[in-house]
């Protein structure tokens, strides 16, 4: 039992369950999922579908944060990805064909990879602090997206493209399936290979990692490229869902949501051990929170207030170290930590 209480996923999961129950209290049909036209419907499905872009971006963000970094540019990258694909489809001679949609998606993915590589270059090769390096693209990115769309909201009508964000497959929204697949692949890629452990090593102790022969530069670069990829796919989802590219508002503040999801999921902003499941739970908490606010009849825009409160509470909980420091601050933390097991 006490082991269960100490597990770092216990509290996020508990919070998620409480939020869901709270909703059920106010709306009796909240937890029910019904089948209509062969598709699944219900609030839970909505939460998953609306949360899919955040989940995707948070996956990339988890690995970036685990490596001691941060990626502020994901919102801008999502906007650019939506812009380039929509623009391609819009200006193509066959705007409705599957092939056009596929090419548009491919262009967006390449753009995401390239932008991620740019961030990774600034961080790992030039050696600029991650928060500052990605700030550049965060600032310029939406301008670039507007440049692509010429400042217009580009609407496209392509059924294949629309399917990414709004379509169904086997009764489930495709965006949920994409997010689930991304989650699964990320999990496999990091835990079936050594990538996850190596990212954690670099995040926990870069010096020791280098002295053990790790190529920290390549690993750092990889996580930013991956983050760019996730952001691009999320951007496709967002623009496909509304069948339009909105350079200004697509993915606005999504970097904040993603960071928040990672932190709620128990991955420390200081880098190191990460939990993809935790991030998933964190993203779902954020999405459910939005829904809850709506259910409670508060203006939906006020969700931000609740998000702020959640950030503050989570941070205070995580900084329990600060409290122990206060009680025994005479012993600086640089001293040898207490060995729990005798030799």
């Amino acid at each position: 039992m006490s082991a269960l209480l100490r597990h770092r996923l216990t509290w996020p999961v508990l919070a998620l369950v409480l939020l869901l129950l709270l909703n059920q209290l106010f709306r009796a049909d909240f937890l029910s999922v019904r089948v209509q036209d062969g598709h699944l419907y219900g609030s839970l499905i909505d939460i998953l579908r609306n949360g899919a872009p955040t989940i995707l971006i948070a996956l990339g963000m988890t690995l970036v944060i685990a490596s001691r970094g941060i990626d502020l540019s994901v919102g801008a990258v999502a906007a650019i990805a939506g812009a380039v694909s929509c623009m391609y489809i819009y200006s193509s001679p066959e705007p409705a064909s599957l092939q056009t949609a596929a090419t548009g998606v491919a262009i967006a993915v390449v753009a995401g990879l390239a932008l991620g590589a740019w961030n990774g270059f600034l961080v790992s090769v030039i050696g600029i602090q991650p928060i500052i390096a990605t700030l550049v693209l965060m600032t310029a990115g939406r301008g670039l997206a507007q440049l692509v769309t010429d400042g217009q909201i580009i609407s496209v009508s392509n059924d294949s493209y629309q399917a990414i964000g709004a379509g169904y497959f086997l009764g489930l929204p495709i965006s949920i399936l994409i997010a689930a697949a991304a989650f699964g692949i990320t999990g496999l890629l990091t835990r079936r290979t050594a990538l996850g452990t190596l990212i954690e090593s670099v995040g926990i102790n870069p010096v020791a990692s280098r002295l053990s022969g790790l190529d920290a530069r390549t690993i750092t670069w990889t996580v930013y490229v991956f983050s760019g990829l996730c952001a691009a796919v999320a951007g496709l989802m967002i623009s496909s869902n509304v069948t339009a590219a909105d350079a200004n508002n697509a993915g606005l503040y999504i970097e904040m949501d993603a960071i928040l999801a990672v932190v709620i999921g128990g991955t420390s902003l200081a880098g190191g051990r990460y939990s993809l499941v935790g991030t998933l739970v964190g993203a779902l908490i954020i999405q459910t929170l939005t829904t809850t606010v709506y259910t409670l009849g508060v203006p939906p825009e006020a969700t931000l207030v609740f998000k702020a409160l959640v950030v503050i509470i989570v941070c205070l909980l995580q900084s329990s170290r600060a409290r122990t420091l206060l009680s025994r601050r005479r012993r600086p933390v640089t001293e040898p930590s207490r060995p729990k097991v005798a030799a």
Binding site: T197, L198, R273
Partner: peptide, 28 residues
């Protein structure tokens, strides 16, 4: 502490770190 241990990882992960680093991330 500063140049050897990856403190938050297990004994196992620490043991195989150099071997793994030599193999690259793909070949776990």
């Amino acid at each position: 502490k500063e140049e050897g241990l990856i403190g938050d990882l297990s004994v196992r992960d620490n043991l195989i770190l150099a071997l793994q680093a030599g193999k690259g991330w793909w070949r776990r």
